[in-house]
């Protein structure tokens, strides 16, 4: 470790010429005595996949929840390169937050019970997103729900089944369809394949890869599974105890880890 953490986090990959889509600076969050995030900064560039790795309790999920505006930090600044929302997004009121999260940010949770209405139909779950954004035509809702489910490679003959009746992999696909239904600028994935068996995990990752390639969606993927990060991410951020300990291009992190903790992590995996 040579540079300070903040400086590290703000270092742009050298070949990037476009301005970052997501900029987070100096985000700190305490829950009572527990420090969840300590002065975390992050940048995500358009079309890039940022992987966040770290052990349980390292603050990676908290950071993702901040990115989805589900929680407000004690201090910190969060900006998305959206022309209509230039300021710090943490200053937005509830209405603006809800609208922003519904229309511009998609999220897939580890636990589908959090992200889905289990007693409603799968297509209805996707349609709900569109309804929040103000779509009021039945034909359009139906059509767009079908499109989104198709894009996430969900079997369309089951589109009116309730998620509770579906397998884990399918539930994640419904979540994914819901997340991409409004073509968000940012897709957040919180351990999207944890709890799925290896073959299903590979299929879901395949879908994510394809989506990323076809639509050039900017993604932030959180996982403790280095395999997932290696498959998906262009750039990796390693977190420990609420701090970013190292970040860099995926190859760089996996082939030549600098920080002690990253070295342990990579070796434990290999």
């Amino acid at each position: 470790m040579i540079a300070t953490e903040t400086a590290l986090a703000l270092q742009a990959p050298q070949l990037m010429t476009t301005p970052p889509l997501l900029t987070m600076t100096g985000v700190s969050r305490r829950y009572g005595d527990v420090v969840a995030l300590q002065d975390v900064s992050a940048m995500v560039y358009p079309g890039e996949v940022l992987g966040i790795v770290g052990e349980s309790g390292s603050g990676k999920s908290t950071l993702l929840r901040m990115m989805n505006l589900e929680d407000t930090p004690d201090t910190g600044d969060y900006r998305l390169a959206l022309p209509d929302l230039p300021g710090n997004l943490f200053d937005l009121d509830r209405f603006a937050r809800r609208m922003l999260c519904a229309t511009r940010i998609g999220i897939v949770y580890q636990n589908p019970h959090v992200g889905l209405l289990m007693q409603h139909t799968s297509s209805g779950n996707v349609a709900e997103r569109l309804l929040i954004a103000g779509e009021r035509s039945f034909a359009a809702l139906r059509g767009r729900a079908r499109e989104a489910l198709d894009a996430s490679e969900f079997p369309l003959e089951r589109m009116d089944a309730r998620p509770i009746e579906l397998s884990g992999g399918m539930q994640q696909r419904v979540q994914l369809a819901k997340a991409i239904a409004l073509e968000p600028v940012l897709l957040l994935l919180d351990e999207p394949t944890t709890g799925l068996d290896v073959s299903v995990q590979a299929l879901v990752l395949d879908t994510l890869k394809r989506l990323q390639r076809d639509r050039a969606i900017t993604m932030v993927i959180v996982s403790h599974d280095l395999g997932v990060i290696r498959t998906m991410a262009d750039r990796v951020m390693v977190m420990r105890r609420g701090r970013v300990v190292e970040q860099g291009l995926a190859d760089q992190i996996f082939q030549d880890p600098q920080h002690d903790y990253t070295q342990q992590l990579v070796h434990a995996k290999l």
């Binding site: 809800r98 409603h120 709900e128 309804l131 809702l141 009116d160």
Partner: peptide, 18 residues
């Protein structure tokens, strides 16, 4: 309070689907 009524159309949507 937020006039967040989108989900009410979800009920109607599912009735039409079913």
């Amino acid at each position: 309070a937020d006039a967040d009524y989108g989900r009410l159309w979800l009920i109607l949507y599912e009735q039409i689907v079913r």
